[in-house]
Design a protein around this nucleic acid. Structure first.
Lengths: 195, 195, 195, 195
DNA sequence: AATGAATGAGGTTTCATTCAT
DNA sequence: CATGAATGAAACCTCATTCAT
């Protein structure tokens, strides 16, 4: 987002790092591994990033950028609120499970490895996302499609969605769209289901 | 599972390790840290555990044992299924957030650090838990209290519940029971709510 | 001086480090070199010292301790002041050039490698030494054996003495005592020399 | 000595390097630092100098050139010897403490970082300086203004003078001329002082 | 004349682990 | 049971140096 130096090589490194961080975890991913993934010597990494943690920070910033982008998509005022939530869910799940987009997954699993300073930044970005979800949920509440505490509902939906990281198999028979629909039916039941 | 040597000291170590693993993560928790937490020298740990990973394995076994225990509580046949699910949820959340029970939290966050061999063992235990949840969900389906894919529902409920690790504050105003009720209302709406 | 853990091994390390620091300089002396000098692996050093700089700090503390000890030797009140200065000089030069006492030489040449924090400590100790020299020089001034600015005189004497590090050869024909006498004659000429 | 390629840029680099070497020491001064000080990239330095040590060699050659120049100033035969020594001292101290002349200071503190080969060269130049000082001291001895070993006297004077690097403050109230006079009074007392 | 990307050797440091006591 | 000394592999990181452009 605000990365001044977003050269190709830097991006390559970030992407490779994200994949590794996701696969084996930030502490277990060595700088050598990352370098090898882009065909570099380990020392060369530090031409692009001052420290290993800086790579994580950049990965997380990008992950959060995607998160926000997925949440803040401009939605036609006329779109019915349930449809808006569906779009939100689909986009979120898409980003989470799309190939070559490991950054968001890293955001969800590696925030503990961030220094306090960087953590604050990530938290601030997370708040942006929450706000977007809250807006849509509020519309749903006004339309009497949901009831109860909106905050809890948001956390439940995101929890259920993010947990899919642990089990969802892209090669399985359940498509992202279907998964989104199932979750949507769960959290915002249609009148049809009630009878 | 029922460890041969379950001496007091060993249990102390496991508990201290669990707390550390939860707090800073398994890779970042050093053997020295664990030892210091129980007033030992780092070398002494290896009298009790052959490797650092063995500690993690033991922590996870205990975590899984608690998970299973919470799930497999013998329930009176006569208990209404919705009540059964509530009990399941409350027990799970209780275990997850109770003080001095960091093992279950570790199970949820550190399985990546397990060797393939140990992972298989943990997965087998997880299946036991799933079976218990499935049984209750099936009863709910038969009573037409829920509809849709039971597996997805189970994953959604557990996802929402486990995600509470990221945000639930024991010192906040929301009690575990209230949280469980809110989640229950979400996933198994009562007729009352429908009108 | 105030080192809590002054074990044999630790002292060995300090001594070996001092020799190396003196010979090749602190930045050029690698931890590996120091370890090899006492028959250790480089990693083992950090069982005794937290960082490489901590070794330097310890070396300098010891060097300063020797410096102070040489300066603060209790001198009989009755000793004539010129004799006192001679003792000071001899002890200082002895310490500076004695075999297996590289610490003081390191103090004089490596203070630049100290962190600001440690530097303050060393400077404080240096002030102690200056005070001792000043006391003696004051006595000489009161006896009209010297004149002029005492601070400048002290700096000149110490400069001349310390500079001997650059050229004095222990194996040469000039003994430490003779060197001390020559310097003394220079800075505190005897009446005999004046005629 | 008279470098073939003494371009402006090269001189800029040498000057910047000298300042850095003096301030933080040769080993701690990185090629990047030097380059940045003249607004270059680190790689560009190697267009002007083959190695980092070559920069040091050039700095020291220049430092020695200044040292020799200060010492070998043509002095009128008729000048009284004490005045000659004063001139020598003043010029030496001036060079040592003048702004933008860090080369001489580097000569005094960084000879350890020179390779054996370059060191020999510097030592040869130093001998030239010593010869100049010896000539003047000899004249003083012949005029019975000093006594004792001339070599020791020379080393003492230079030691005292060079030590001023450690404490002399250009912004303080003591001028270079006053310092020179005080040292001169110390080493070549005037008849006035004797009474 | 200068750059910017990259190297690779080597530096300090960490840490699970061993073992004699 | 437990320690404390030590290991050694491997981690992150630095930096003089190279070279195509």
């Amino acid at each position: 987002m605000n990365t001044l130096d977003d050269s190709t090589r830097r991006r390559e490194l970030r992407t490779a790092a994200a994949r590794l961080f996701r696969k084996v975890g930030y502490p277990q991913a060595t700088v050598r591994d990352i370098a090898k993934a882009v065909g570099m010597q380990s020392g060369s990494i530090f031409y692009y990033f001052k420290t290993k943690e800086d790579i994580l920070v950049e990965v997380m910033n990008e992950g959060m950028r995607q998160f926000i982008e997925a949440a803040c998509v401009a939605m036609d005022e006329a779109t019915p609120p349930r449809m808006k939530l569906r779009t939100l869910l689909v986009r979120h799940l898409m980003t989470l499970h799309s190939r070559n987009n490991d950054e968001l997954a890293v955001v969800l699993s590696e925030w503990r490895s961030l220094s306090a300073r960087s953590r604050r930044h990530v938290v601030a970005q997370r708040d942006e996302v929450e706000a977007a979800w809250n807006r849509v949920l509020q519309e749903l509440a006004q339309a009497h499609l949901i009831s109860g505490d909106i905050a809890i509902l948001r956390l439940a939906i995101l929890g259920a969605a993010n947990w899919s990281l642990q089990w969802y198999d892209k090669k399985g028979k359940l498509s992202i769209d279907e998964l989104a629909d199932q979750l949507l039916d769960l959290f915002v039941p249609t009148p049809a289901r009630r009878t």
